[in-house]
């Protein structure tokens, strides 16, 4: 069971996560808007989406207990190092949310038509699928996001120890929650952590993905 301190921490994370979701109008636009016809429109739209996404990510991170006590430049290095991974994780959640079931095909089509090379899109969809198969609870997404952001071995981090301590507190809660939510699957926690490795791979390929997009 979670200690009262851990329950409080989880509550903070969930509040921060729920307050910083993608605004409904942007989510709707992503799925239903048909008036984006040219590549330029698509470029502007996806850039706006990405900017909002980063802003939300920063707002979420600012509210994580302990984050603001870290060195300011370390805060920036953590966010810079994790933004792409955290965004892929959020997009996987969005993609797998039941609410969007009827729109998933539309969203998939939009991503396929984005101009990004198929070589990158197929692994992306495989990732979404593999995350979907884990049937993660909302708390698991929120905690995993915090864990991704608070990765101590990002470039330019000066005080790795403080970051590691913070990350550990979230890892401990996630491990306990996994046991509660998936009592019949003792491997669940390990599988979640395995997704982090996949996220790192996406992050490494992200620049190439953008390049292929621009070239197209």
């Amino acid at each position: 069971e979670l200690t009262s301190e851990q329950m409080e921490l989880l509550q903070f994370v969930m509040d921060a996560y729920n307050k910083n979701r993608l605004p409904q109008e942007l989510a709707t636009k992503l799925i239903v808007q048909d008036d984006i016809v040219t590549n330029d429109d698509n470029f502007v739209f996806l850039t706006t989406m990405a900017t909002s996404h980063v802003q939300l990510l920063v707002e979420f991170t600012k509210k994580l207990p302990g984050f603001q006590t870290l060195d300011h430049e370390d805060q920036i290095a953590l966010l810079k190092g994790s933004a792409v991974e955290a965004m892929f994780l959020r997009s996987a959640e969005l993609f797998n949310r039941k609410l969007l079931d009827t729109h998933t095909d539309r969203l998939a089509e939009r991503i396929r038509n984005s101009g990004i090379s198929q070589d990158y899109i197929n692994p992306l969809f495989n990732f979404y699928k593999s995350v979907g198969e884990l049937n993660m609870a909302e708390e698991e997404y929120a905690l995993l996001s915090a864990i991704v952001i608070l990765t101590p071995d990002r470039q330019y981090i000066k005080d790795k120890e403080s970051v590691e301590k913070l990350q550990e507190s979230f890892l401990n809660i996630l491990e306990k929650l996994c046991k509660q939510h998936h009592p019949n699957n003792p491997q669940h926690f390990a599988r979640l952590l395995g997704r982090l490795t996949e996220l790192r791979t996406f992050s490494h390929h992200h620049t190439d993905m953008l390049m292929s997009w621009r070239v197209n």
Partner: peptide, 21 residues
Amino acid sequence: PASNLGLEDIIRKALMGNFDE
């Protein structure tokens, strides 16, 4: 426009809470 900002600029502005300025 936001599309001209780099990732670090967006992060710095959002961290300082003055993104719209």
